[in-house]
């Protein structure tokens, strides 16, 4: 193959390839930094990043979700628990839990929702000290609601 040929005597004596390599690295010593110094500096995730889940709200602040359960049925890791009940002829959610420790952030729940009631926001720093806190409940699902258009 090309590139396979032996080092010539000239190259051998004058360390040509080593010098070339060093020159290349030297060039980058004076260039711009490319490393983002997380956590002091943060890289902006793209708007569509699949981070933590949130409810989308109607313009009057109520949840769109009608507890149909399709997202829970479609979740590949079975981490959504939903309970709903009928109030004034309208179904509302009474319990909506996502077990974040099991969630794989695949976004299938978002794709599955026929009401377009949940979304994922680009929030990715979700680590906590206590495992029990890794549960997103109905209240938690409102935390970033203002970020998504209704």
């Amino acid at each position: 193959m090309e590139g396979d040929k032996k080092l010539s005597l000239f190259e051998k004596i004058f360390f040509i390839e080593i010098i070339k390599g060093h020159l290349l690295t030297l060039k980058y010593m004076f260039g711009k930094n490319v490393t983002v110094m997380y956590p002091d500096e943060k890289r902006a995730p793209v708007p569509k990043s699949r981070g933590i889940h949130t409810f989308k709200l109607e313009s009057d602040g109520t949840e769109r979700c009608n507890a149909c359960g399709l997202c829970a049925k479609f979740c590949p890791s079975n981490c959504i628990t939903i309970k709903g009940e009928k109030v004034d002829g309208k179904r509302i959610v009474t319990q909506y839990d996502i077990d974040i420790t099991r969630c794989i952030f695949c976004g299938m729940c978002v794709d599955a929702c026929p009401k377009d009631a949940i979304a994922m926001v680009e929030e990715y720093e979700i680590s906590v000290y206590n495992k029990d806190e890794m549960n997103l409940d109905q209240q938690g699902m409102h935390k970033y609601s203002s970020r998504v258009p209704s």
């Binding site: 490319v34 793209v46 569509k48 990043s49 699949r50 976004g107």
Partner: peptide
């Protein structure tokens, strides 16, 4: 890794994830 990052950013742009795209 510096150069690979450029494509990862592009993939993130279309799929929303950086490694597990689905």
């Amino acid at each position: 890794f510096r150069d690979r990052e450029i494509i990862l950013d592009l993939f993130e742009m279309i799929s929303g994830a950086r490694l597990t795209y689905s």
